[in-house]
Design a protein around this nucleic acid. Structure first.
Length: 836
RNA sequence: GCGGACGUGGCGGAAAGGCAGACGCCGCGGUCUUAAAAACCGCUGAUGGGCAACCAUCGUGCGGGUUCGAAUCCCGCCGUCCGCACCA
């Protein structure tokens, strides 16, 4: 059990004649209280300074914060504090993603109503964020399971319904038998596994609500290029959207039906010797001949089961299976009669669910043709290769070459002449150019309780009727039976279910499905800008000032789902006229994952989860913040280790005694410039290092720079510079540089220096760039690339002089042994390399 | 199978063509103490040599290359992790 009590502060024991010891519990308790009393982190829309919107992915309130939450949050907190000290008006809000399966499943497990457990968890998590010293303005908190928030989910849904962006459709959808609900494509993991509970899911035919995200496919793909996002996230989004250029071609069947296919290689249509339909294709039933019917039915049955049994291995997938339907189509360019097969390697969910099979140019079609002895026709021949022979080919050819056996197009070079071929096919009425996407529309209905009710009503007379906007919110009743049964729990809540039709006033039924939780998180950052607005999801004028988000931090696990949906919503909200931009997050940074000490994933069940509260009690929040940042590169993550934290405690103690023991002065000594120059230079270089490291999100080296600064100051402490004004400046700088990372002790030290409250409202230190360059520098002398000597040389010494100085060194003279250097390489301020 | 990232002391890591191992942890030695803790100081990649300050050689997964000079760039392997995986 973790403690959630605020750390109480005892008066520090005063030991006479001994320097005062650093006592985190006292310091942190004192300042936490003071900051809250003063509302130090209150964000004012109209405060001076350029705006900076730093957003961190809000957590699920399904438990308490573990060390991973701290790791994820401390870095953006440090950065937000830096931006504030740089003079930006910084918005750094926090809230809770409170609807959805994690909270609901936990509630069912513990037999507590999700509303109770959710708000209970939120209360605990509030205390934990306070402990961390996070720079959060809690007056802007957003909790998505409150009617004040989700009524705007409903409002946005109604706007999308009006624009045709929300629609109901029947189709094969993923069903999770454990969670008893449908899932979006994005929530189904490899091996047909439910993203939430790990159960194997399968397809069911159901009528569901969708958002037409595919309308924005092209824009989602292209706008991404302007963003400062990690390359791998961009790649994942690009792959998920899956844009392919090609053509839609029409084949006429002997039954008279027209079968459309999508292909990226319309130039190979002369080589289409058969066609394949997905087993679920709606035409299969109609075209299958009586003699083939039994065999086709058996295959479809087997294919349907396949998603329920263990996923096929790669090898097994290569075993091409399929069945002839008995039907034939006509190849539109050769007029040949070609057979129609069904096979599971053709997916209903991509393209048209049917393909023209060109065994010459597609490896899967090739394997299928070999397996079932179907004809292969050569249609491309490169000039510099021997002629292909269908009898002896071992794999499909996908490279460049000239079209052969291709009617009037024979001789055209590929892929250069592809547009010409498509133009010719279009002219001939065989099809037209098409861009196809892998992206499917977003299925948003869920047959679960803990979510936003979908605001529509079904009237026996008027049909589907949207709930009028002035009747929002449609409130989720708290007294419903929420254990999953496979139909939406709200069906059993009579008072909710039965209503009157907003149009005719007659008896009607409410929609009982709720919305996917990802709807909540698709626009929540807008709500932070005016969280209490009662007339709109957000005040458009205020939102225009704060958004888009300048920096978004969170886990890589949201690379597709949340980030794609959020981008889609932003474009929809733009098209509703509320904002002007179409991309929500200009800069994205992903933290790595903190693993358990053994290097495995932290898990509650194995007890390898590390709780931050005990660590704070033992070492202080400042030390824990530093330690997390010092573990390694933030964007990489790594195993937790509990030992290193003592090093951070030592560092803070050293800084503490350095400041308290030398910060009071007197600073009346004036020394020659040369005596204080090293101190000035040290200060300037440290500011430079800390600032650039923070800008590059290299928190581990930023901490190292702070430690080195203190180590150097400890050395200089023994010299007379400690009584110069420069020392006072250097000590003040130390406290300012520590402020973002160790907010508590920095505030304490700032006060002890007699400086005005608060250190967090000070200006980030600047430095004279000229000072970061020394006049004299130790230059390495190499002979044939090996270091043999080093000597102090002026930074800008001309090559001739450097060469003379170096060659005059006794060690070098000895090493070259009188041999005349063949070549001398001189890098001013760095090294001299003598090649003999 | 395809694509990407990574591989450095006992450990976490630093070094983005120029002194490999910054900084921290661990460990060892010392100061202070009756003692311990804390604190402070010093040492701490390997091998060999020297009483010693030090010197030499090797060393960034393996093999090659480019360069005066490579952890860093290029090519080929090996390994780890991640993403995608019948996308027509």
């Amino acid at each position: 059990m973790t403690t959630t009590e605020p750390i109480t502060h005892h008066p520090a024991p005063i030991t006479p004649n001994l320097p005062e010891r650093y006592d985190p519990a006292t310091i942190e308790g004192k300042w936490r209280e003071r900051w809250e009393r003063d509302d130090l982190y209150h964000v004012d829309d109209d405060a001076p300074g350029e705006k900076w919107y730093s957003l961190t992915m809000y957590p699920y309130p399904s438990g308490v914060l573990h060390i991973g939450h701290w790791f994820a949050f401390v870095a953006p907190d440090i950065f937000a504090r830096l931006q504030r000290m740089r003079g930006y008006n910084v918005l750094f809000p926090m809230g809770f993603d409170a609807f959805g399966l994690p909270a609901e499943n936990a509630a069912i497990r513990n037999n507590i109503h999700p509303a109770i457990s959710t708000f209970g968890n939120i209360e605990i998590m509030h205390q934990q964020y306070r402990l961390m010293g996070a720079m959060i303005d809690w007056s802007r908190e957003v909790i998505t399971c409150t009617p004040e928030y989700y009524r705007w989910n409903q409002w946005l849904f109604l706007q999308m319904l009006k624009k045709g962006l929300a629609y109901r459709a029947n189709g094969a959808v993923w069903w999770c038998p454990k969670d008893q609900t449908v899932l979006a494509n994005e929530q189904v993991l490899e091996g047909n596994i439910c993203e939430r509970c790990g159960t194997e899911v399968y397809k069911r035919d159901l009528e569901q609500w969708y958002f037409r995200i595919t309308d924005y496919a092209e824009e989602l793909l292209h706008d991404a290029e302007k963003l400062d996002w990690p390359e791998r996230v961009m790649t994942m989004q690009r792959n998920w959207i899956g844009r392919s250029e090609g053509a839609r071609l029409r084949f006429t069947l002997e039954t008279g039906d027209v079968l459309e296919v999508f292909t990226t290689r319309p130039d190979t249509v002369w080589g289409a010797t058969f066609m394949v339909l997905a087993p679920e294709h709606p035409l299969v039933e109609k075209i299958t001949t009586d003699t083939q019917r039994a065999e086709v039915a058996a295959y479809i049955e087997q294919a349907r089961k396949q998603s329920e049994i263990e996923r096929m291995s790669t090898d097994a997938a290569r075993q091409r299976t399929g069945v002839f339907t008995g039907a034939y189509a006509v190849n539109p360019v050769t007029d040949e009669r070609i057979p129609l097969w069904i096979a599971d390697y053709v997916l209903m969910g991509y393209g048209t669910g049917a393909i023209m099979a060109v065994p010459f140019g597609d490896q899967r079609d090739f394997e299928f043709a070999r397996a079932f002895d179907l004809p292969i026709r050569v249609v491309v021949q490169p000039d510099d290769l021997p002629n292909f022979d269908p009898e002896t080919m071992t794999e499909a050819y996908t490279g460049p070459g000239r079209l052969v056996n291709s009617g009037t197009m024979t001789g055209k070079p590929m892929p250069e002449a592809l547009p010409e071929v498509i133009a010719w096919l279009t002219e001939a009425g065989r099809g037209e150019a098409e861009v196809n996407f892998r992206l499917r529309d977003w299925l948003i209905s869920r047959q679960r309780y803990w979510g936003t009710p979908i605001p529509v009503v079904y009237c026996p007379d008027c049909g589907l009727v949207p709930v009028p906007e002035d009747q929002l919110p449609v409130v989720l009743p708290l007294d419903a039976e929420f254990t999953p049964t496979g139909q939406s729990p709200l069906v059993t809540h009579e008072a909710f279910l039965h209503t009157t039709c907003p149009q005719c006033g007659g008896a009607a039924r409410r929609e009982t499905d709720t919305m996917d939780t990802f709807v909540d998180s698709s626009w929540y950052w807008f709500r932070y800008t005016s969280p209490h607005d009662e007339n709109a999801p957000f005040d458009a004028e205020v939102a225009r000032r704060w958004t888009p988000v300048d920096l978004y931090c969170g886990g890589i696990e949201h690379a597709i789902l949340h980030l794609l949906y959020a981008r889609f919503f932003t474009k929809v909200i733009r098209d509703l006229g509320l904002i002007d931009h179409g991309e929500p997050f200009l800069r994205l940074r992903n933290q790595g994952m903190i693993l358990a000490e053994e290097g495995t994933k932290m898990s509650k069940s194995r007890g390898s989860q590390v709780g931050p509260d005990e660590l704070v009690a033992a070492h202080g929040a400042d030390a824990l913040r530093l330690h997390l940042m010092y573990l390694g590169p933030w964007e990489q993550g790594g195993p937790w280790n509990s030992r290193g934290i003592t090093g951070m405690e030592r560092f803070i103690r050293r800084a503490f005694s350095l400041v308290t023991e030398t910060g009071a002065g007197p600073f009346d000594q004036s020394l020659p410039d040369a005596a204080v120059a090293p101190l000035h230079r040290l200060r300037a270089k440290t500011i430079e290092r800390v600032t650039t490291d923070l800008d590059e999100f290299q928190f581990n080296t930023m901490v190292a720079a702070l430690i080195e600064y203190v180590n150097e100051l400890m050395r200089l402490r023994e010299t007379e510079v400690i009584h110069t004004p420069a020392w006072r400046e250097a000590i003040g700088t130390l406290v300012l540089l520590m402020a973002p990372s160790t907010p508590y002790v920095a505030e304490e030290l700032w006060e002890r220096l007699g400086m005005p409250y608060s250190v967090h409202q000070q200006i980030w230190p600047t430095y004279d760039a000229a000072l970061t360059r020394a006049n004299e520098v130790e230059v390495v002398v190499q002979i044939n690339g090996k270091v043999r000597d080093r000597l102090l040389l002026p930074v800008d010494l001309p090559e001739e002089d450097a060469r003379a100085r170096v060659l005059a060194q006794p060690k070098i003279a000895e090493a070259t042994a009188g041999r005349e250097p063949r070549k001398v390489i001189y890098v001013p301020g760095r090294l001299v390399n003598i090649v003999v």
